[in-house]
Amino acid sequence: MAIGLQADPSEGVAGKKRWAMVVDLRRCIGCMACVAACKAEYDVPLGVWRTTVKVKDLGQYPNTKRQFMPRLCNHCDNPPCVRNCPTEATYKHEEGYVLQRYERCIACRTCMAACPYNARHVLPNNRSRVKIGGVVDKCTFCEHRVSNGLVPACVQTCLGRTRIFGDLNDPNSEVRKLVATKAVAVLKPEKGTKPQVYYIQPTQKITDQLSSPPASYAAKADAEAFYRHNKGRQFFGGVL
């Protein structure tokens, strides 16, 4: 058993599934349909996201290119969020998902501090329809859909087929073939988290987005507005 985790990594284990996602960056057009589908599937409140698409213009006129970078929980095989959770509210599923038990979560944000991908957020308390609030939430790879034979909402709605989902242990699955044949990369491999979201053909410039603060005037203004709504601070200011 992996130390501090509830299930051993299932990748390559016969008879077990290992769900994974491949994101083909050549196909993403930045339509944000995945973001909208995810918001609709879970009634994700304003100001927080389970999945996002970062957008950045690269180069100088006339040689410019707009790059898109879909982001979500990487459902790591060595998830630091799971190991650090004081109540085992977040746990490793035997099929690879990293899931959240809301009834145990104490909103200590240890998992948020542990995650190098900023894939977690705190749900506000005052939600109008879904009453789950004051706990940490994250992408679940749409476990409720996948266990019923569907693909995640973001994959279902992706019009460019950028997001491809499947069982990495199934030799006939599309994700397995893509990971085996294409030049894929994972985010922040140096952190040792063994992430299970693979990106096809990420250039250095795209992955550099992971370590560059907002530079444009618009992005900086957006950031200021965002933090202004959090009592003017960049830090968590109590369960909303």
Binding site: K56, D57, R66, A113, H121, A218, A219, Y227, F235, G237
Partner: peptide, 15 residues
């Protein structure tokens, strides 16, 4: 340069 970023709140503050 056009950017569309997503902002995050650092989980642990002054308290």
């Amino acid at each position: 340069m056009f950017e569309y970023s997503w902002y995050h709140i650092a989980p642990w503050g002054a308290e």
